[in-house]
Nucleic acid binder design. Structure first.
Lengths: 353, 353
DNA sequence: GTTCTGGATGTTAGCGATAACCTAGAGCCC
DNA sequence: GGGCTCTAGGTTATCGCTAACATCCAGAAC
């Protein structure tokens, strides 16, 4: 641990090599998957690493391999809760790989603005991009990325498309499970508030809802469906329309938590008790879901884990080839139904007349 | 742009040096502040950099300088909106400096859990830590950090303490400004919902409120004050207590947006129109503030910028010395009063009787 | 026995940037 | 004019790690 110009006397491969009686190269091999290393040697090295508390220096590694060092993340106002979870996961994966995350906000809705934000990446030198929703389905973004030859991996793009890389949950199945939960509680009149019409996930969630309704022997046409845009405001409007009607539905299934939170607000304002008078459920399990009273029954997406997986997938893809599209790849991660306090059996028949 | 083993044919200092007819060292000097470089040379190099679109390789830089490569961020559930903003800023600064951000959640409230989370950092090799609220005021965290000899910079720690490093806004002045806004609108009966009693910022905001009230010639004792904990739930309870009373206040100043949002919910439920019947204001300007109807008048903290500044301050501190405490440093960044739709003049006298 | 094969290791040479040191002049003093 | 200081700039030697190639040796193949 000689005093070089650098302050911290970190443990290096050399130190480990000496301690284990092998060469630095062998240590390096053990650290990275380690092919062509005899078992006994591997153990000796592993022991030395453990004893010396060796941690590879990521800067040196990425310098040596000359690999991707910056990967982009183009975000456009998913809810803050979603973004922070997403960042936590993405960061963990990026750090492990020794590469930096370059964030780029993409405020505008217009194609021009989206293309412009995307172009930023071509200038900064990011070697790949991950796209959380809703940008993963934006045509301008994808076109621009393709034009610049920057590979990307989408997260939560509703449905698989050939040649694309995607990490998602099974929106269809999750929505169906939620619907079954309501039906099992006894609800027969369930209203559905849809998500943004441009996002495939919206359609998938609706499909799942319809499927579960039919599977229970009910008529999907009898269920009221309101349009929505995944925003609090749109949830407000949709719920107002729903609760104006009589008889009112005994349950509302909003395609995301923001709209569900809005539904809770409107119901409260109309003097309804949740879940006694009406059940309300959401989708996503963002923090908002527990910041509302009562806490929402919802579907949890493992957002951080999905982001982590997406980064890993992107890096693997970059490692493999120079950037040609490859064949695409899709990974479906498990979701979870979270039952909280916003659901209960419907009021006794006739209660809402 | 020879084909080395690395795929990307990046521009290096050497390329720039050749193009400008100088040595690599000179280019490096120009890039980093550049002392001892003649003006004409500097310009030539700058021109070459621009022309070749040179971007220094952060990995190589941090390897060469042997500086901090990992800085920690210990977070404990500030609102998701706060965290995501914070991360955006911190990430930008970290990337510029070529160092990685290591996130560590600190869930527990107990001293043990907090100390344990902090200890994680000693193991991973982070060279410094930044502490967003509320952890910046946690005694166990600070003790543990000191024991491990890891320098830290706090963000939004309410008040300066000798020997500590801190980036914050002027909570006192901001709260006073908000209070003046309400008084200027004509409010004379303003209720205040306090923040978490353990955080200095809560006290500062309250002090600011009292100060402005007195400055306007009103009696602070006449203003109702409710305890709160910065949570949505505590805001709910506080507002219910306030609105049960008669006459009810014409305005409610909640010490953060989460509680203000709760206040809006309760007021709505009681059939009050905001801002016609009652004005409600918050503090922080997190996304929640615009996810509620009407959008909240609040105080904006430049969260991302504060995080960025904190990281820069930490790095400067690490660069300077090995880690001894130094003398502490404090930076107060400007806040901004954001007037939206949740404030208006009070109802005509007697309206609330 | 000789050649070949292939797995396990060591050696060398960078990756891109900068710290530390060195050099050549310019300006200045006595 | 010799010695000195100061400045602008170049040289060299790493930082820690890993590709690429070289080496060595056991066993297989002939």
């Amino acid at each position: 641990m000689r005093a070089t110009r650098r302050g911290q006397g970190g443990v290096t491969v050399q130190d480990v090599a000496r301690a284990a009686g092998v060469s630095a190269m062998t240590v390096s091999r053990v650290v990275n998957g380690g092919h062509n290393v005899r078992e006994s040697t591997r153990l000796a090295v592993a022991e030395a690493i453990e004893r010396l508390q060796y941690k590879p220096n990521p800067a040196a590694r990425s310098l040596a391999v000359g690999e991707a060092t910056q990967i982009g993340l183009l975000y456009a106002n998913p809810s803050a809760a979603y973004l922070s979870q997403f960042l936590i996961g993405a960061l963990a994966a990026a750090r492990r790989a020794g590469c930096h995350l370059v964030l780029e906000p993409c405020e505008g809705e217009s194609a021009d603005e989206q293309a412009e934000s995307t172009r930023q990446f071509a200038g900064a030198d990011v070697q790949g991009v991950i796209l959380p929703p809703p940008l993963c389905e934006s045509e301008p973004v994808r076109t621009e990325l393709a034009a610049a030859g920057i590979p990307s991996v989408a997260v939560a793009m509703g449905r698989h498309e050939a040649g694309t890389y995607n990490v998602r949950i099974d929106d269809f199945e999750a929505a169906a499970a939620m619907t079954r939960h309501l039906i099992d509680l006894g609800h027969r009149d369930i209203a559905f508030i849809r998500g943004h019409p441009n996002q495939v996930a919206s359609a998938e969630r609706y499909r799942g809802f319809v499927h579960a309704v039919e599977a229970a022997g009910l008529d999907p046409k009898a269920m009221r469906v309101e349009p929505g845009y995944f925003t609090y405001r749109s949830g407000l409007a949709a719920t107002e329309r729903l609760l104006r009607q009589s008889p009112r539905p005994t349950a509302i299934f909003a395609a995301n938590d923001d709209m569900a939170a809005a539904a809770v607000g409107v119901a409260h304002r109309q003097g309804l008790h949740i879940p006694r008078d009406i059940s309300i459920v959401g989708f996503d399990d963002v923090a908002l879901a527990t910041n509302v009273w009562p806490e929402l029954t919802t579907v949890r997406q493992p957002i951080a884990q999905m982001a982590e997986t997406a980064v890993a997938m992107l890096l693997a893809r970059l490692r493999k080839r120079g950037g040609d599209a490859g064949e695409g790849e899709e990974l479906v991660v498990p979701h979870e139904l979270i039952v909280r306090e916003s659901t209960a059996p419907p009021p006794k028949a006739g209660g809402a007349r």
